[in-house]
C-alpha cells in the first residue's frame, strides 16, 4: 500500500513516538492508576498502526516485521504462564502465588509480581493486535498480484 503526503508522514513520525511512550506509561503504572496491560498494549498497537497507515508498507519492511511479532507474542504468553508457575516453586504451592515482597502501597516498585504480569500481557496484546492489522494489509497486497 502507498503512503500519504509528506505533511502527514512528518506529523505522524513526530506523534507516534509520544503515543508509544504513553502506552508504556499506562502499562508500567498499571497497578497504581487506571489502565493496565490490555489498555496500554492496545495504545502501543495503535501507534504502530498509525505509522504504518501514513508511511505505507515499504517503510516498515513488512515481511520481516510479521515474523518478529509472532515470536514476541508467543514468548510473552509463555512468560505469563512461567511467572504463574513460578508461584509453585517459591513459598506455598499455589498457582498465581504473589511470592515477591509487596513493598509500600502506592510506590512504583511494589505489588510483587503484578507489574510483571502487566508488562507481559501488554506485550502480548500489542503484538497480537498489530499482527492482525498487518496480516490484513499483506492479504490485500498478495491478492492484488
Amino acid at each position: 500500500m502507498k503512503g500519504m503526503t509528506l505533511i502527514v508522514k512528518k506529523t505522524t513520525q513526530l506523534i507516534a513516538g509520544m503515543i508509544f511512550m504513553y502506552g508504556i506509561y499506562v502499562i508500567v503504572h498499571g497497578h497504581l492508576t487506571p489502565g493496565g496491560g490490555f489498555a496500554g498494549g492496545v495504545v502501543i498497537a495503535g501507534s504502530l498502526i498509525l505509522i504504518t497507515l501514513s508511511n505505507g508498507g515499504d517503510f516498515m519492511k513488512l515481511i520481516k516485521e510479521e515474523s518478529g511479532t509472532t515470536i514476541i507474542e508467543s514468548l510473552a504468553t509463555i512468560l505469563v504462564i512461567l511467572v504463574a508457575v513460578s508461584g509453585f516453586i517459591f513459598g506455598t504451592k499455589i498457582f498465581f502465588n504473589n511470592f515477591l515482597p509487596k513493598g509500600i502501597v502506592g510506590h512504583l516498585v511494589s505489588a510483587g509480581v503484578l507489574p510483571l504480569y502487566n508488562i507481559f500481557v501488554g506485550t502480548e496484546v500489542a503484538a497480537s493486535i498489530f499482527i492482525i492489522f498487518l496480516s490484513l494489509i499483506i492479504f490485500k497486497e498478495e491478492s492484488k498480484e
Binding site: G30, H31, L32, T33, P34, G36, V80, I81, A84, F95, F96, N98, K102, G103, V105, G106, S110, A111, G112, L114, Y117, N118, V121
Partner: peptide, 21 residues
C-alpha cells in the same frame, strides 16, 4: 492483600489470575 493501589489490577491479576491467563 495484593499490594496494588489499583483495585482492578489487583482483582484481575491476583484474585482472578486464571481468567486473565
Amino acid at each position: 492483600k495484593t499490594g496494588s493501589a489499583n483495585l482492578v489490577t489487583g482483582v484481575v491479576f491476583d484474585f482472578r489470575g486464571y481468567d486473565t491467563m
